[in-house]
Design a protein around this nucleic acid. Structure first.
Lengths: 233, 233
DNA sequence: GAGTGGTCTAGACCACCCT
DNA sequence: GGGTGGTCTAGACCACTCC
């Protein structure tokens, strides 16, 4: 057994973490194969298994590793989806939409509350966007509750905006706020990510050709899965 | 001593974390005053101090708490700066710029490498943007190394674009990629954030009126300090 | 010197997966 | 049944701050 050389500049779990990071970058631990177990790493580095677990957990939070209880810890495949920033971008061919829920509730997200009415019960449509049988985005749309039922029925199948367009209601102005925030319990479950995992979010307010209809919402994805692109002017 | 009621739906450290979150939201633990020490919380919740520390560390990662060794743990003031998405937005009056370094190096960030030349030594200007004596953003600018020295000298004082404008070189097109990524060791130190803290980033490529000059860079801030806004069309 | 958070350890138990 | 990661504990040491 070869004792690896750890950089002593920092605490033990930091040294272990950085050494593992180097190995991942070097391809020593390829994806699709479990990395050595905590017990093995503990022996190899001559540190307690607690310290190994601490390093592994930090690398999970950074999106580098993913641990599956009972199986092992794996290097995460780094594939970022690049999308237009504007929420109005037409859907990609290889994505599908699954409806999660349609409810009536008030806007609870504090940041969305800055660009949308807070204390008003609205129609709330939640859906997930999938690609290659993996969830890549989650959308929460709020709009006026007095929308015709024939439109509401279509919300499950397509984006709210697409459904509105089919009824000759189109978006005239879009206001966006981009931020990052820890995942809520709801999306943690959907994406299978650990608590507090950062989400890249686009909060939107869309004015339509129908003066009575304004659409609000949040379109979000795990930070390591998405990047948005835009051009000026 | 009143034993608090913990929701038993989850693991211990999760229950503790959520109870602390509730108290913070309710204002039980105001900012500027240290919350009870790990020893006190350990006694109050009747769990080991390790478990308390685990909960506190997760709340730190979420940007809710900040611990200062030897002093205590504090509720973080949640003040997000809202800025225009376009990097070209004029500087605010109450911000100041501090130069960090001017070097010659290749672009190392892999994401920036997708919109900029990778294997070319460039002039690299790093600076921090401060507001109320706190660092709020960090900028890394890359540009062609054969820029006149009289322009380079101004890079320390103002944004690279502002310096170029003073020499009649203005930006004609901006291409942006917005993403979120764990903080690098360099910016960890500047912002005083824990390892892997998520950063909201804007990676830019700017074409100028001078065909020989294209500007690349990364403008980033801790995810809980910044949000960007933009309007379409 | 007392109190604080940060680190590290050994040891135990559990739920889960695979064979 | 053996291996995996996840959780929890008691106990120890350190560096730091404040009085």
């Amino acid at each position: 057994m070869i004792k690896p050389q750890l950089q002593p500049s920092q605490s033990l779990h930091e040294s272990v973490r950085e050494e593992l990071r180097r190995r991942i970058a070097a391809g020593t631990y390829p994806p699709d194969v479990a990395i050595p177990s905590t017990a093995m790493l503990s022996e190899e580095f001559s540190v307690s298994s607690i310290t190994i677990k601490r390093a592994l957990r930090d690398l999970q939070a950074a999106g580098t590793l993913v641990s599956i209880p009972g199986k092992g810890t794996y290097v995460k495949q780094q594939k970022r989806l690049l999308r237009q920033l504007d929420v109005m971008q037409p859907s990609l061919d290889d994505t599908s939409i699954r409806s999660v829920s349609v409810t009536r509730e008030k806007i609870s997200d504090p940041t969305l509350g800055t660009i949308a009415p807070r204390d008003q019960v609205m129609l709330c449509v939640r859906k997930t966007i999938w690609m290659d049988d993996e969830p890549i985005m989650h959308d929460t749309t709020y709009l006026s509750p007095d929308i015709g039922n024939e439109v509401v029925d279509e919300f499950g199948e397509r984006f709210v905006v697409d459904a509105l367009v089919r009824h000759s209601i189109h978006v005239t102005k879009t206001h966006l706020v981009i931020d990052a925030a820890p995942a809520t319990a709801e999306v943690e479950e959907i994406f299978g990510i650990p608590n507090g995992y950062p989400m890249l979010r686009r909060l939107y307010r869309m004015v339509t050709s129908d003066p009575g209809i304004t659409v609000y919402g949040v379109l979000q994805a795990p930070f390591d899965r998405l990047a948005c692109t835009v051009d000026f002017p």
